[in-house]
Computed example of a mutant assay.
Amino acid sequence: MAGKAAASRVTAGVSFAARLAFDRISHQFSPTAPTLHDVSLAAEPGEVLCLLGPSGSGKTTLLRIAAGIEAQTRGRVLLNDREIAGPDIFLPPEKRSIGLVFQDFALFPHLTILDNVRFGLTALSGTDAKKEAMISLARVGLEDYAQSYPHILSGGEQQRVALARAIAPRPAVLLMDEPFSGLDSRLKDSVRAETLAILRQSRATAIVVTHDAEEAMRMGDRIALLKDGRLVQLGTAEELYNRPTSLFGAGFFSELNIFEARTLNGRVDTPLGTFASPGVADGSAVSVAVRLSAFDVSETQGETPARVVSRRFLGVVELLEFAVPGADRPVRARIRCGALSASVREIWLTVRKSDVLVFERTSESA
Rank of each mutant, 00 (worst) to 15 (best):
residue 221 D to R: 11
residue 240 L to C: 02
residue 244 P to M: 01
residue 260 E to V: 06
residue 230 R to F: 03
residue 266 G to S: 07
residue 233 Q to N: 02
residue 225 L to Y: 09
residue 266 G to K: 02
residue 285 A to E: 14
residue 286 V to S: 08
residue 252 F to S: 01
residue 246 S to T: 15
residue 238 E to S: 10
residue 251 G to F: 09
residue 275 F to I: 05
residue 248 F to V: 00
residue 298 S to K: 11
residue 222 R to W: 03
residue 220 G to Y: 08
residue 290 V to M: 07
residue 250 A to D: 06
residue 242 N to C: 03
residue 258 I to S: 02
residue 268 V to R: 10
residue 246 S to L: 00
residue 228 D to K: 13
residue 237 A to H: 02
residue 263 T to D: 09
residue 297 V to Y: 10
residue 281 A to P: 05
residue 217 M to V: 09
residue 285 A to L: 15
residue 256 L to Q: 14
residue 264 L to G: 14
residue 249 G to W: 07
residue 273 G to P: 15
residue 272 L to H: 11
residue 238 E to H: 06
residue 258 I to T: 09
residue 249 G to L: 06
residue 282 D to L: 09
residue 284 S to C: 10
residue 261 A to F: 09
residue 269 D to P: 04
residue 285 A to D: 15
residue 253 F to M: 04
residue 253 F to Q: 05
residue 298 S to P: 12
residue 238 E to C: 01
residue 235 G to N: 12
residue 294 A to N: 05
residue 217 M to K: 12
residue 295 F to E: 01
residue 281 A to M: 10
residue 244 P to A: 03
residue 284 S to L: 11
residue 254 S to F: 05
residue 286 V to W: 10
residue 271 P to V: 13
residue 259 F to Y: 13
residue 224 A to I: 13
residue 253 F to E: 00
residue 248 F to T: 00
residue 292 L to R: 14
residue 251 G to Y: 09
residue 220 G to M: 05
residue 263 T to Y: 13
residue 223 I to P: 02
residue 298 S to H: 10
residue 245 T to Q: 10
residue 264 L to W: 03
residue 297 V to L: 11
residue 235 G to P: 11
residue 222 R to Y: 05
residue 253 F to K: 00
residue 293 S to I: 00
residue 226 L to K: 07
residue 226 L to G: 04
residue 290 V to W: 09
residue 286 V to E: 06
residue 264 L to P: 04
residue 287 S to P: 03
residue 275 F to D: 02
residue 292 L to Q: 12
residue 250 A to S: 06
residue 271 P to W: 11
residue 257 N to Q: 01
residue 245 T to F: 00
residue 234 L to M: 06
residue 243 R to D: 02
residue 281 A to F: 11
residue 292 L to D: 08
residue 229 G to V: 08
residue 267 R to I: 04
residue 263 T to K: 12
residue 222 R to K: 15
residue 231 L to Q: 01
residue 220 G to T: 02
residue 285 A to S: 14
residue 226 L to A: 03
residue 249 G to C: 14
residue 223 I to C: 00
residue 240 L to G: 04
residue 277 S to M: 07
residue 235 G to V: 00
residue 227 K to T: 05
residue 255 E to C: 12
residue 257 N to D: 03
residue 228 D to S: 11
residue 247 L to N: 01
residue 223 I to V: 14
residue 246 S to P: 02
residue 274 T to C: 11
residue 256 L to I: 14
residue 239 E to T: 03
residue 251 G to K: 10
residue 278 P to H: 13
residue 281 A to I: 11
residue 217 M to G: 05
residue 248 F to A: 00
residue 234 L to R: 02
residue 261 A to D: 03
residue 228 D to R: 13
residue 234 L to K: 01
residue 228 D to H: 10
residue 297 V to I: 12
residue 274 T to I: 13
residue 259 F to C: 06
residue 270 T to A: 14
residue 274 T to Q: 15
residue 275 F to W: 14
residue 284 S to P: 05
residue 292 L to S: 07
residue 258 I to E: 01
residue 217 M to W: 04
residue 219 M to Y: 09
residue 269 D to T: 14
residue 228 D to A: 15
residue 237 A to L: 01
residue 258 I to Q: 01
residue 234 L to E: 04
